[in-house]
């Protein structure tokens, strides 16, 4: 059943409505609930396809559903509509506004309406898609303060990597932090790249969501085997490759591959002079798990990330 979670009027003949679709058996007494949230950043679309795939599989075998699935595909609908990462007209990051304020101004009110509606979920999955600049392997990012509780849940959703990162005060205003703080285990999924759909990643995560549902007793249907993710903790070093020159980055190495120290990752070139400005090389042996997708770089732009000392079994 499609419901409006919260809404506010825009200036000219339009309401901003945050909608969800609740999929559940007729009798919902004592059933567990998973909420799937996406579309916080208007340029991240991978989660859109996951929302569709989850419903498609349920619709194929509705008799197997023994729980409540709430799907919130667009919590920043005007951002998605206008290919804007933040909230158009305000230039604000929706994911820095939580938990919001029911008595606050329009956007705080909307943010609080979303948080309030999500309360009571047994698990919340907040799907992001990196951004337009970087391609990411399917992964869950977890604030270290919630690590113990969330890592076992994240291991069920068929991602390749779990990254338990240090706590940062500025991240306290994210949806995931706000939900975890009120006791709703919330996983932040990052995968793929902005403005695109990576079908294989979306299918992979969908498999994982059904595995999680199965483990919670919410799904009695068939569940594919899921992969065991690499887990990286904040004490583990991660190598960041940043552009040393501004220019055009052209990759020479594929994403999610083993690399060795000194390996050629790509070049930063100058189309005006026809010169290679700098060569980007791996600074350690490991797995290249992030790669630059958008070619224009400024000095400092992130080119890639390497997990040192790890190796993919191929």
């Amino acid at each position: 059943m499609i419901q409006t979670v919260t809404q506010a009027d825009l200036p000219c003949d339009e309401s901003l409505r945050i909608k969800k679709n609740r999929i559940a058996p007729e009798n919902t007494d004592n059933l567990k609930r998973i909420s799937i949230v996406t579309g916080t950043h208007g340029d991240e679309l991978e989660g859109q396809y996951v929302c569709y795939l989850v419903q498609k599989r349920i619709n194929e075998h509705p008799e197997c559903l023994n729980g409540i699935i709430d799907i919130y595909p667009a919590i920043n609908p005007i951002g998605i509509d206008s290919i804007t990462r933040g909230i158009p007209a305000f230039d604000l990051d929706m994911n820095r506004m939580f938990p919001g304020d029911s008595e606050g101004y329009m956007l705080e009110h909307i943010a609080n309406g979303i948080v309030t509606d999500l309360e009571g979920s047994d698990v919340c999955i907040d799907i992001h898609a990196s951004n337009i600049f970087l391609t990411e392997i399917p992964q869950v990012r977890i604030n270290t303060i919630f690590g113990k509780k969330l890592v076992p849940i994240a291991e069920k959703i068929n991602i390749d990597l779990i990254w338990v990162h240090p706590s940062a005060t500025v991240l306290e205003s994210t949806l995931a932090h706000s939900m975890n703080a009120v006791g709703v285990p919330t996983l932040v999924v990052e995968m793929g790249v902005g403005m695109r759909i990576t079908k294989s990643y979306c299918e992979q995560l969908t498999d994982g969501i059904f595995n999680l549902m199965s483990s919670l007793g919410m799904w009695s249907g068939e569940v594919p085997n899921v992969r065991k993710p690499l887990v990286v903790y904040d004490e583990d070093p991660i190598s960041f490759l940043n552009a040393e020159k501004s220019g055009l980055f052209v990759a020479h190495t594929k994403h999610w591959t083993n690399v060795t120290e000194g390996q050629h990752i790509g070049d930063i070139i100058d189309p005006l002079s026809g010169k290679v400005l700098t060569t980007v090389t791996a600074d350690c042996d490991g797995i290249l798990f992030t790669i630059r997708e958008y070619p224009i770089v400024d000095e400092g732009s992130l080119i890639g990330r390497i997990l040192p000392g790890r190796e993919l079994k191929i």
Binding site: A8, D9, L10, P11, C12, A89, G104, Y105, M106, H109
Partner: peptide, 8 residues
């Protein structure tokens, strides 16, 4: 010149 609802 434009205003959204519930704006301070």
């Amino acid at each position: 010149p434009l205003v959204y609802s519930s704006t301070a």
